[in-house]
Design a protein around this nucleic acid. Sequence first.
DNA 1: AAACCCATGCAATAGAAGTGCATTTTTATG
DNA 2: CATAAAAATGCACTTCTATTGCATGGGTTT
Lengths: 137, 137
Amino acid sequence: METIEQVLESKNIRVTAMRLLIYKFLAEKQVAATLSDIEKAFEKADRTTLYRTVKTFVEKAIVHQIDDGTGITKYALCEQDCSCEIETDLHLHFHCNNCNETICLTDHKIPKIKVPDGFISEQINLVVKGLCDKCSA
Amino acid sequence: METIEQVLESKNIRVTAMRLLIYKFLAEKQVAATLSDIEKAFEKADRTTLYRTVKTFVEKAIVHQIDDGTGITKYALCEQDCSCEIETDLHLHFHCNNCNETICLTDHKIPKIKVPDGFISEQINLVVKGLCDKCSA
DNA sequence: AAACCCATGCAATAGAAGTGCATTTTTATG
DNA sequence: CATAAAAATGCACTTCTATTGCATGGGTTT
């Protein structure tokens, strides 16, 4: 089991108190978080710091950025074996129209999509919207 | 061949000069347009009017709203036989990472996506990103 | 200890999206 | 045709997300 410090160091991210806290917050959350979620969780910290911390995490590929169609970017920790920095990685997310939460469906892979001649596919963003297990009951 | 007036009337949208112009603009454009694209094309008109016109078009299902992951909502005319108001309709769009344009791939359908037990799928948003035919050359 | 790098904090801004209200235009009705 | 009602347009303002410039401060290196 890797410690958070080791995860950060392995990606050349300096370990700071703030970064450990934000990492833990994302790790404990089962759903993708918005910046404003993170702000609410760390009211003492400055918004810019949170913004830049998350940005660093995204750039260093320990967090991936999710666009679920709400217009608000969400963030979630990458899986251990996540390859979201690789072009061919396939993201699949579920967005609940009721509770407005977004969940990574990591074990549901996306089928190969055909594109017309001359088009080159680099990434695929797939968001399924509907009711999550908690809201469909 | 249906006139624009007939299209609008068939959806219970009042025909106004502004609406005809915006419809024509979208019809001539081969790629999806942002509100700001439309603003640039109609600088004499007020932003609110453009905003509300597009909103009306979306509500009446003659335009569909595209979320291509740039964070900016784009709009494109529905096809004649477009069923985007129906829950099960499958949208597929291509976003070019180079020219930043978004294209509807209307004849490329989306395969059925499985979701875990308890989840109910209502809509699917699929955006393929990469290089379009013009930029890949 | 000094110099430096980088994280953090503060302030300000840009840009998209949305709302309330007044005014004008269009449609409906007598 | 006149007039009332309804809808469209225009203006001003607000909210929210995202982003940047600059100053400060803590930790690391030499």
